[in-house]
Design a protein around this nucleic acid. Structure first.
Length: 852
RNA sequence: GCGAAAGUGGCGGAAUUGGCAGACGCGCUGGACUUAGGAUCCAGUGGCCCAAAGCCGUGCGGGUUCGAGUCCCGCCUUUCGCACCA
């Protein structure tokens, strides 16, 4: 029984502590002193305005880590900002008539408040918002530097175009081939756009992945696949009718003697000439047009199709005439848009050859293959190592494939008919957006001088505020006369301003460096500070950025490095991807599987119904359209932010997807209540005198908890860290008759619990008469000697059967163990003349002596 | 199709190295206190069995080992990624 004022009431204490932390600016880090530095960073959010409990996970996780690091005495930096440009703001403007700026700023205010309400402390003195001219000005500056170096250029490319909205769409805005907003079918269009030349960095971005020891393999693999490095050779195949050659790319030049035909992409520039005198020219052209209209996906669904051009090429090594085909499976965007086909050793070529009855010639055999070659094509198919040999291939016969690849490459270069090359799947980064709410690209079009960059001293090119948002006629910027009309800085004549804005991924590709000198008006960032604090030691964010943001950021970091602005090439040393929090929603099959609002679900015998029909539960991402969003307000009002924090981290390993459960929350709350009530008793026990010392079991558990929680922080195992604190607290609860003697152990519990439940621990810490801000007190250190049990049980097993056991002091020396065996009558008699197979010493556990 | 990861109670999940499977929490069962309990506290909770003893238990089938959730081989299932990249 507790007096009312002693009850755990999160509502009474949480806002008080949040205010104190804010007033004392506890999270502000002096960036000038970077010794013992630890730069941790959560990916900055897009301020959409609705943070639900699922969003809380990675911020809570980051805050717990930050508080732990501070208690460890690290100079930890933990800033936060806003990825504030983007489409949703503009859509809100169109739908609701709110200016994107107002919409964004009010969302930022709301989300900032929400972070505070979760007890998350950031260094707000370093806050940045990408929509602020003081920030995007440096986007423009960066653009100009890249432009100067040829890394930003204007060129033609196929893009997603919505004919109704008259604008280019981001990939995320295309759903099942349709415009997300108006539902019109999106078409591919060749348009002049601005690009960043990320392909220049393909090799460095690929090679750099190997050094990222602390990145999840999954992300590295995804980036590797995306970059798609392939080493091989470009080789010219002479075409007598054209009087010149067609260049192909292959990763397997060692198979060139097996190349029995060429296949060109239907879009290949030489196709028109090749079929110009073909008797069925019209039919082939019709087919080409059909294929061109198909997306890659559609082409694959069609299956492999081709047409014979009626013309032949010369295989430069066999000197044979080989037919030239067109194939829907050859992509113009990759390599040279032409391939040599080796049907014996490539699955796709094999399928094509089989379908059209083309020649198959085997040129690889397995090493161990007995006489009587050839072996089956399947076995030799992918053989690229020393277990295989090249056969029937002139100068390379008998070589292993790797050796043959080298040899052919050399030969091709010697003959001047090609080169060894490395090709990448990666394409240049299209950064143009025909949108208002983004960084204006600082370029001008002058009738006399052509493309002219805006001089650096004229930056920022500010976004005008007074533009109309109709959502119908493309980029509002283009209609803003005062913005568009400018003077050419070269000739002083009339010029038009570029009205495209930048992809918002440009904003996020260097923001981590800006946090270090966020208000600097003279440069993009302070290189001295950047070199002291970069790279980011721990980066936390969702897996959805595995490629886009993380690849762009790695690219821009290298570009900044090459500009001499920063020493590092890799911006993020450690990467952690938290899993999503999911929630059950209910679909109504009778209504075309539409989602049912939670309020309309009736429960009968534990099953969900609506209107007498059973609903289908489905667990997934929280979203408004599924009516399964859990807002944090009610939860916090009822149980407190500490409860949400503890529950969120306890629910599952943080990298895993985890289902939100209303019942589960209660467990976390009860845990905090118990710790609280126990604290009151222990404090009162201490002041009433007569404090017996804590039992050895409590001290042992305490050291085990310190050790366990510390180790688990290092490994991001927050769920088990919390469970070990529950064990520790349960044991304290079992010894409350010693209340007064538990003070030291209890204060340790508060410290270990602080990163998870900061408000409650601060309050209790203060109730114990300690100075405020557990944050600045020292993280306890475990004494390994005190972690061990006093005695261990030696279990003697014979052939897996228990034959006896005995307790000995811990740790037992090996001769003690042997003596224990000797003392055991049963074993002794049985053991005579036999040998001890193995002894295992497990600290604090059992010792099994197994004899045979 | 290719590649990767993972399969443990009613549920979320524990189990440094091959060493007491199911920690911790939810839920459930019983009890206490109650006008009441959706509050709190206590006890129990993998299965078979009234209970005990015992036996069986980490997707399935083999194997290695004194000993396997963990290692090896072969399947099945799920999730994620890539998807004609020559």
């Amino acid at each position: 029984y507790c007096a009312p004022h002693m009850q755990y009431r999160p509502g009474d204490i949480e806002e008080k502590w949040q205010q104190k932390w804010a007033d004392a600016r506890v999270a502000e880090t002096g960036v000038t002193a970077s010794g013992n530095k630890f730069y941790m960073l959560n990916m900055f959010p897009y301020p959409s305005g609705d943070l639900h409990v699922g969003h809380g996970r990675n911020y809570i996780l980051g805050d717990a880590l930050y508080r732990y690091l501070r208690m460890q005495g690290r100079a930890a930096l933990n800033p936060m900002g806003w990825d504030a440009f983007g489409l949703p703001a503009e859509n809100a403007a169109i739908k609701r008539g709110i200016h994107p700026r107002e919409w964004t700023l009010s969302n930022i205010a709301r989300e900032k408040k929400q972070f505070e309400r979760w007890g998350i402390i950031y260094d707000w003195s370093k806050e940045i918002a990408s929509c602020h001219p003081g920030y995007y000005r440096w986007n423009q500056w960066l653009f100009l530097q890249l432009y100067r170096r040829g890394l930003a250029y204007r060129g033609k490319a196929p893009v997603n175009w919505c004919p109704q909205d008259q604008t280019v769409l981001a990939n995320e805005q295309v759903i099942d081939g349709r415009c997300e907003r108006c539902g019109a079918e999106v078409v591919q269009r060749d348009l002049e756009q601005w690009f960043f030349k990320i392909t220049d960095y393909a090799d460095r971005l690929d090679a750099g992945l190997d050094a990222l020891e602390h990145w999840p393999d999954k992300v590295k693999t995804m980036q590797r696949n995306w970059i798609g490095r392939s080493a091989g050779a470009d080789i010219d195949f002479p075409i007598p009718v054209l009087g010149r050659s067609i260049r192909i790319f292959t990763t397997r030049p060692d198979t060139i003697f097996g190349a029995t035909f060429l296949v060109l992409a239907p879009e290949h520039p030489d196709v028109a000439k090749l079929i110009s005198d073909h008797p069925d020219r019209a039919a082939i052209e019709k087919w080409i047009a059909e294929v061109r209209n198909q997306s890659n996906l559609e082409r694959q669904e069609t299956g492999k199709e081709g047409r014979f051009t009626g013309k032949y090429a010369i295989n430069p090594f066999t000197k044979e005439e080989i037919p030239i085909w067109l194939g829907n499976f050859v992509l113009m965007q990759y390599g040279t848009g032409a391939i040599m086909s080796v049907p014996a050793h490539d699955q796709r070529d094999f399928e094509f050859a089989k379908q059209y009855g083309l020649a198959v010639r085997i040129v690889i055999a397995m090493n161990e293959t007995p006489p009587g070659w050839p072996l089956s094509m399947v076995e030799a198919f992918t053989a690229k190592d020393d277990s295989a040999r090249i056969v029937d291939s002139g100068l390379i016969t008998g070589l292993t494939p790797p050796a043959a690849i080298e040899r052919i490459g050399d030969e091709v270069e010697r003959l001047g008919i090609g080169n060894k090359t490395v090709r990448y799947r990666l394409r240049d980064w299209l950064i143009s957006r025909q949108r208002y709410w983004g960084t204006p690209i600082p370029m001008l079009y002058c009738d006399r001088c052509g493309l002219v960059p805006v001089p650096e001293e004229e930056l920022p090119v500010e976004l005008p505020v007074d533009v109309p948002f109709t959502g119908r006629e493309g980029n509002p910027l283009a209609k803003h006369e005062a913005f568009v009309n400018a003077k050419c800085p070269k000739c002083g004549g009339a010029a038009r301003r570029e009205t495209d804005t930048m992809d918002t991924f440009v904003d996020s590709s260097w923001y981590y460096a800006r946090y270090l000198s966020p208000r600097d008006t003279t440069r993009i960032f302070d290189s001295k500070l950047a070199n002291a604090w970069l790279p980011v030691d721990q980066y936390i964010g969702g897996i959805e950025h595995a490629i886009l943001h993380l690849l762009y950021a790695r690219f821009i970091c290298r570009a900044l490095h090459d500009l001499g602005l920063v020493d590092v090439e890799e911006p993020f040393t450690r990467l952690f991807n938290q899993g999503m929090i999911t929630k059950e929603g209910y679909r109504d099959p009778a209504q075309g599987n539409s989602w049912v609002p939670l309020g309309e679900v009736e429960w009968r015998a534990g099953k969900p119904y609506r209107g007498g029909l059973e609903l289908v539960p489905e667990t997934g991402k929280m979203s408004k359209s599924r009516f399964n969003v859990v807002p944090p307000d009610e939860l916090i009002a009822r149980y407190g932010a500490d409860t949400q924090r503890v529950y969120t981290l306890f629910i599952a390993p943080p990298e895993k997807e985890a289902p939100w459960s209303e019942e589960g929350v209660v467990g976390a709350y009860r845990f905090l209540v118990r710790v609280w009530n126990m604290g009151i008793q222990i404090r009162d026990g201490a002041t009433s005198g007569g404090a017996p010392p804590a039992p050895a079991a409590v001290l042992r558990k305490m050291h085990q908890a310190i050790d366990g929680v510390t180790r688990r922080f290092e490994r991001f195992e927050f769920n088990t860290a919390i469970s070990s604190l529950m064990e520790f607290s349960n044991l304290l609860g079992d010894h409350l008759e010693h209340a007064g003697g538990l003070r030291e152990a209890y204060l340790v519990l508060l410290k270990l619990l602080h990163p998870f439940a900061p408000h409650m621990t601060e309050e209790m810490w203060e109730m114990f008469g300690e100075k405020p801000f557990v944050l600045t007190s020292k993280w306890p250190v475990a004494d390994p000697a005190l972690m061990q049990e006093d005695v261990v049980t030696i279990v003697v097993q014979v052939n897996g059967k228990l034959r006896g056991q005995i307790e000995v002091p811990n740790p037992p020396a090996e001769d003690v163990v042997m003596a224990a065996v000797q003392k055991n009558e049963k074993v002794q008699s049985w053991v005579a003349g036999k040998t001890v197979v193995k002894t295992i010493y497990v600290p604090g556990k059992l010792v099994n002596v197994v004899v045979r």
